[in-house]
């Protein structure tokens, strides 16, 4: 017992006190800034770059840094979530402040219904376990997402919305739709990671079935590969409290 208490004392406090303004290591590749009119689009492994006029699609971008030498700089800004697919496209000289202004456009009802408590059911539809590990990390002692009333729950029946990771494989399409239909209304859908938003590195695979995304409305897009816990928590928090 004494050993247990000692161990606990030795750990001290590990949580990040202010998630909304948490500092991020400088090396983190977050929001990209485009410096050039003519980007070499061939360096991008997922086709996120476009030239004349230059743009990056964060919905496809894996933040790998391959375009770093080719007119793009990566900042360590991590609040990348948006409510519209179009807002994920970054144009030349766009700053993080410009991006943030347009990123989250939430509705009054969202804040009223989900503002203090949001229970989510996660569906891995072909995810590589990268996003899944980061979503699990959201609930650990460092990030402690539960303090804002946001939690992952075991059943869609208990959930207010679903979080999709992975490019949605043919084999998971049915289970995903089943899960969505089992979630009571009102509900939200969150796409997490480049794979879920655009197919990411698997966008050319014939084993995918992304019809779900055409059928049902998407409320929040959270880019990354994988999504950083701070990106996820801040994205969801902004969405339900703004």
């Amino acid at each position: 017992m004494l050993d247990t208490l000692k161990l606990k004392y030795f750990q001290g406090k590990q949580y990040i006190p202010d998630i909304k303004n948490a500092s991020m290591k400088a090396q983190f590749r977050g929001f990209p800034v485009i410096k050039s009119d003519n980007l070499d689009v061939t360096v991008c492994p997922v086709g996120a770059l476009k030239s004349s006029p230059s743009s990056i699609d964060l919905g496809k971008c894996t933040l790998c840094g391959a375009c770093k030498g080719a007119g793009v700089d990566f900042t360590n800004s991590y609040k990348l979530a948006t409510t519209q697919r179009e807002s994920l496209i970054i144009t030349k000289d766009m700053t993080f402040e410009d991006y943030e202004k347009l990123a989250i456009k939430s509705r009054k009802e969202i804040k009223r219904v989900f503002g203090k408590s949001l229970k989510l059911r996660q569906v891995s539809a072909g995810g590589c376990n990268g996003c899944e590990m980061e979503l699990n990390a959201c609930s650990n002692c460092n990030f402690d997402m539960g303090r804002y009333g946001i939690d992952f729950v075991a059943s869609p029946r208990h959930a207010d919305g679903i979080v999709i990771t992975g490019p949605i494989t043919k084999n998971m399409a049915y289970a995903l739709e089943d899960c969505y239909n089992s979630t009571p209304d009102p509900k939200i859908v969150i796409l997490t990671g480049a794979c879920a938003i655009s197919g990411g590195v698997f966008q050319n695979s014939v084993e995918l079935n992304r019809e779900f995304l055409d059928k049902y409305p998407i409320d929040l897009y959270i880019p990354g590969c994988p999504v950083h816990p701070l990106t996820f928590i801040n994205g969801v928090l902004d969405f339900i409290t703004k």
């Binding site: 894996t62 891995s124 072909g126 494989t169 695979s205 014939v206």
Partner: peptide, 25 residues
């Protein structure tokens, strides 16, 4: 098999460049 994304085929069909990002996923 629910996760089957056809990784081996995606790699062969991809561009002639090396595809390290696919391998990471």
């Amino acid at each position: 098999g629910y996760q089957h994304r056809g990784v081996e085929d995606v790699l062969l069909k991809g561009s002639s460049r090396f595809n390290n990002r696919l391998m990471e996923s």
